[in-house]
Amino acid sequence: MTTTRQRTDATQRVWNALQDVTDPEIPDISVVELGIIQRVEATDDTATIDMCPTFAGCPALDYMRDDIRKHVTAAGFDHVRVNIVFDPPWTTDRITDEGRRKLKAFGLAPPTKCSGGPVTEAIIRDVACPFCDSHDTTLESIFGPTLCRAIHYCNACRQSFEQFKPVE
C-alpha cells in the first residue's frame, strides 16, 4: 500500500539522519549504535523520536537531543519531536556490535554483556584491554571521568585504560 510505503521511507530517512548524530564525548559512535533510540515514527513532514538516556544525569543528553532535532530537520522534516523515555530502560546490552567495535577503536573497552541479568563484580572485572586485548587487567576505579566510564589497568601492556561500564 502506498501509505505504508511512504511511512517506511520516511522512517528510514529519520534513521539515516540519526546515524550522523554522535555522542559528544565519544565522537565516533552514533546514537543508533549506542542503542538509545527507542522508537521512530515519521510521516511526510513530521517525525517523532523516542530516546532513552544512558544515565539519568548524563549532561550530554540535552546536547544529543538538540543535535537529533537539527539533523532530522535537515533531512526534510518540519516538525520534529524528541521524547525522553525511561521505559524500557537503556542498558549497555543495547549497544550494537558496530558500536562496540567503534568504542574499542576509540580506546574505550566495550562493556561486557550482562544478557538481561544483573551486573556483577565479576562482569565488571572481566575486561580486555582495548589496546593489546589482554585479559590480564586490574579494576582501578568503578567511577571515571564521565558517568559511563570505569578505569582499569592493563598488566600486559602496562597502560591504564577506560571502559564503557556495564549497566543492567
Binding site: A56, F86, D87, P89, F143
Partner: peptide, 21 residues
C-alpha cells in the same frame, strides 16, 4: 504509578555502582 516505576528501574541500574563503592 507507571512513570515512577520506569524511572525507578532505570535508577536501580545506576545505583549498583554506588552500592559496590
Amino acid at each position: 504509578y507507571q512513570p515512577l516505576a520506569a524511572i525507578a528501574r532505570k535508577i536501580r541500574g545506576e545505583l549498583k555502582y554506588h552500592l559496590m563503592h
